[in-house]
């Protein structure tokens, strides 16, 4: 293999794609959180089918931990007053209620339909550009209508550190 081919191979993301499950219509936020924890990811694609395999035509968006946790996890006033909160605060009850309520909600409540796929051959530079453009820490990868997994900033860094300074 020539040096140019080697560079080309190195600069694409095919070898750092992390396969992940897909969440389905009707799953709860608790299931989504569990899958994120198990797979160490911040977001998962969402399938409009209730179970089984899912091609990209049925993936209508994604759900992220940020959107699901965000402002639904704690009361809005606590976020606005974050700088003056102290540890003796008693209004944790409200927060716990909110969290319990959140876990039982259907995951589609937090669906973001602006999903964008890249192919496994996509170059790192394009992936970085797209992450910056969408202010995101991940991108979903698909090939020939099949979901392949996720590429994250951490995985990109993992690939980058193999290079010399």
């Amino acid at each position: 293999m020539s040096e140019a081919e080697d560079d080309n191979k190195f600069s694409s993301i095919y070898d750092v794609i992390m396969p992940t499950p897909i969440i389905h219509q009707g799953d709860t936020v608790k299931t989504f959180f569990s899958l994120c924890v198990e797979n160490q990811v911040l977001a998962l694609p969402f399938c409009t089918r209730q179970s089984g395999d899912c091609d990209t035509h049925h993936i209508s968006g994604f759900v992220s931990l940020k959107s699901a946790m965000g402002k639904d996890c704690i009361p809005n006033y606590m976020i606005d007053m974050a700088t003056i909160l102290h540890d003796d605060l008693d209004c944790k009850e409200q927060t716990l209620d909110k969290i319990k309520n959140l876990l039982c909600k259907p995951v589609e409540t937090y669906l973001d339909e602006n999903i964008f796929f890249v192919s496994p051959e996509t170059k790192m530079v394009r992936v970085i550009a797209l992450m910056e453009k969408f202010n995101s820490s991940w991108l979903f990868v698909a090939e020939e209508g099949q979901y392949k997994g996720i590429i994250t900033r951490q995985l990109m860094a993992q690939k980058m550190i193999k290079m010399d300074c």
Binding site: Y77, M81, L89, D90, C91
Partner: peptide, 13 residues
């Protein structure tokens, strides 16, 4: 003022 109020009333129950 609304966030301060809600925080205080939650604390005071």
């Amino acid at each position: 003022i609304a966030p301060v109020t809600l925080l205080i009333t939650a604390e005071l129950r």
